[in-house]
Design a protein around this nucleic acid. Structure first.
Length: 696
DNA sequence: GGGCCCGCAGGG
DNA sequence: CCCTGCGGGCCC
């Protein structure tokens, strides 16, 4: 084979690797793409003009631009050259923000992520992806496809490598070290890398089809005392907050008052007239669970509580009784959570049906009034206030103010404690139902036929359960599916961990069977620890170094220097074995990740929260409770009412501004878009039998 | 003060 | 897994 001329650049010290001289500044030429310095006089094709030197591409870069290497598995042409052009186009686009540019660049580099945002994945999934990033081919910048490893420890796609060789190159594209003729003739696939990439790809695909509920789920006991914003949340404060800890032991679907036995923190239960800053706090004391919805209830179980927040203009508040409007009938398209405009008829379904069930059964319904109800004299000036137990005496449908049918409920108070607005020292007595004029035009009227579950006991002189309350279907202190979601999360974490551990196991040394330290990839594409492989030939090393030894001895030694895995001669490789740094980095990343996850799971077990800071909101209330315990029940109620008036005056609503806080909201719009990963799958399939294919 | 936005949580 | 929702923050 005729000797070919290869262009070589200058090394890190500025010495030309071809002539071994150090070119002067005038003799040196820098590539516009890769910024590598080259010696002009040693170039086989020097630039024609001075203008050319300014926009000069080195032989390697111009080669890649002129002969694009097909992107493996993607089914389309790309190259580092066109990639660079595309990146430049993004960088110079003034209409894009920095964040948008970063996003476009990422999309460009991860073609398989599709046109939309990549599906949001958990941190551990992201880490798996970043580990994969370390295994990109230096030619095509894509994840290694049928990886081949040079003895100098660099990895390339088989296609890219053979193309490079086909162009007459016999040096490593990364370090310029010579490629053994045998490898140039028949490059072998590094099966360890294949397995590692395949497992990681499968993990990535699994992550991509995960649900949008992949964010961490926190058990009640681990939640902080106040609502907190999660990592996911774009807005600060309570705008998109997660709920704080539930302080009471009542299950979510508990009917009736929150009693002292359900209040381990204060041992007093929730008293009429208690107030809270917001819906989250109200929820934490078990009074009204949903943090937006006005009705808490289940259609087949009944409604436990309602909130009067002025959200429905048909509401009519008379203190001891009020007319409540059902939910629904409003257009919530466009990602709205509420809407003041009615646009279609309400039906007795979902929470409306739950309230109707409570009406039929005569269940006690907790009532909360909000300062947002501006038309009522009975609403608190500030905050939210618990006003006690009411019963739904009747319900019906009528045409609302906006002309659409609404569900209507007559609530009548039936609590043993006096209402916050009354000067009475005793609670309610059974009272005749008010006359409701709109009942004359009402449809679908429902009245209770059987005796109510919650009723007044004349003998005992108080309201109480006359029938056993409906048995709870929920666990105390837990959301409906929180337990399930938690199990799911733990399962996914364990799965991810096992993937990483599996990956690491794949990186074990043939000799010591342990995870490789400083991995060496032989020309026969087998991987060993540097120390293991060198140790295996320790005796020969000494002889081999003595090159003046006789021919017979050397040959005998060379025969012994066989790959422990496939018995190929690796004597030459052992003369100057180079660590496969990319593989080493993958191994180290995996080890770091596993260690980190172990640490995190330990911390989680210890109940540590980074972002959400636990704030003890209860001290004041506990002191209050202790004080109250010394006095009679009625006295404490009066005190409570007085305190309510004071706190109402003191309360100020925070209304700060944060500049540019919503500037990045568009980035989150694609959060539910699932990565199709089609090219990925194709690539995985092609990887099924890489060795066999490569030998064809 | 109106309007828009969107994470969270529960229902079904 | 999709739908619903009488919140809360921030911009205009």
């Amino acid at each position: 084979m005729a000797q070919q001329v290869y262009d070589l650049p200058c090394d890190g010290e500025g010495t030309c690797m071809a002539c071994k001289n150090k070119p002067t500044a005038e003799e040196s030429l820098t590539c516009k793409t890769c910024a590598t310095p080259w010696h002009i006089t040693c170039l086989s094709v020097p630039p024609n003009s001075l203008a050319d030197t300014l926009q000069w591409d080195c032989p390697d870069c111009s080669l890649l631009s002129a002969n694009p290497v097909p992107v493996s598995g993607a089914g389309e042409s790309s190259s580092s050259g066109s990639l660079i052009t595309a990146i430049c186009a993004i960088e110079t686009d003034s209409s894009l923000t920095e964040r948008e540019k970063a996003k476009r660049r990422q999309q460009l580099l991860c073609k398989d992520a599709g046109p939309s945002d990549r599906k949001e994945v958990t941190n551990s999934d992201d880490n798996l992806l970043s580990i994969l990033d370390g295994l990109n081919c230096s030619f095509c910048m894509q994840l290694l496809e049928r990886p081949v490893s040079t003895p100098c420890g660099h990895n390339f796609c088989l296609k890219c490598f053979t193309k490079w060789i086909g162009q007459g190159k016999r040096n490593c594209a990364n370090c310029r070290k010579e490629i053994p003729p045998k490898m140039a003739r028949l490059p072998l696939i590094n099966s360890t890398l294949v397995t590692v990439i395949r497992i990681a790809k499968m993990a990535k695909a699994n992550a991509a089809v995960g649900t949008s509920r992949d964010y961490p789920v926190i058990r009640n006991e681990d939640r902080p005392d106040k609502a907190f914003s999660t990592e996911r949340s774009v807005k600060s404060g309570n705008a998109n907050a997660a709920s704080g800890k539930i302080f009471v032991t009542t299950p979510m679907d508990h009917f009736g008052p929150i009693l002292p036995e359900n209040d381990p923190m204060r041992n007093q239960g929730v008293l009429v007239g208690e107030t809270w800053e917001n819906r989250f706090e109200c929820r934490q004391w078990g009074v009204h669970n949903p943090h937006i919805s006005g009705i808490a209830g289940q259609s087949k179980h009944g409604a436990q509580s309602v909130t009067l927040s002025g959200g429905y203009e048909d509401d009519e508040d008379h203190g001891e009784w009020f007319l409540y409007t059902g939910s629904g009938g409003r257009d919530l398209s466009g990602n709205k959570r509420t809407n003041k405009e009615h646009s279609f008829d309400q039906q007795f379904e979902n929470s409306n049906e739950a309230l109707r069930l409570s009406c039929r059964m005569g269940y006690p319904v907790r009532v909360v009034r909000s300062h947002k109800e501006k038309r009522s004299s009975y609403a608190p000036e500030k905050r939210l206030r618990y006003d006690g137990i009411y019963r739904v005496e009747k319900c019906w449908r009528k045409t609302g103010i906006k002309g659409f049918k609404v569900c209507r409920y007559l609530f009548v108070r039936c609590d043993n404690a006096p209402a916050p607005w009354t000067s009475d020292v005793h609670g309610d007595r059974p009272r005749p139902l008010p006359i409701i004029e709109e009942l004359n035009v009402a449809i679908d009227i429902t009245e209770r036929m059987e005796s109510p579950s919650w009723d007044y006991d004349e003998e005992k002189g108080c309201w109480m359960w006359k029938k056993p309350p409906p048995s709870s279907r929920k666990r105390a202190n837990y959301g409906r599916s929180e337990e399930g979601k938690r199990t799911k999360k733990v399962k996914r974490q364990a799965q991810n961990k096992s993937i990483k551990e599996k990956l690491l196991k794949e990186c074990s040394c043939y000799i010591c069977k342990k995870v490789m330290t400083s991995p060496l990839t032989t020309p026969c594409a087998h991987n060993f620890c540097k120390s293991c492989l060198e140790g295996a030939f320790a005796g020969q090393n000494f002889v081999r170094q003595r090159t003046c030894e006789g021919r017979r001895t050397l040959r005998a030694q060379k025969n012994i220097m066989k790959c422990p895995s496939c018995s190929n001669d690796i004597a030459e490789f052992l003369q100057n074995p180079q660590v496969n740094r990319e593989l080493m980095e993958v191994i180290e990343s995996l080890q770091r990740e596993i260690a980190k996850e172990n640490k995190e799971s330990k911390e989680e077990a210890d109940g540590i929260h980074e972002k959400a800071k636990g704030v003890d909101v209860s001290n004041e209330i506990v002191e209050e409770a202790q004080e109250n315990n010394l006095k009679g029940q009625i006295e404490s109620e009066i005190q409570k009412t007085e305190k309510l008036k004071k706190t109402s005056g003191k309360c100020t609503q925070k209304r700060g501004r944060k500049k540019g806080s919503t500037s990045c909201k568009q980035l989150d719009d694609g959060k539910n878009v699932v990565d199709p990963s089609e090219p990925e799958k194709a690539a995985s399939e092609e990887l099924q039998d890489p060795v066999a294919e490569s030998k064809v």
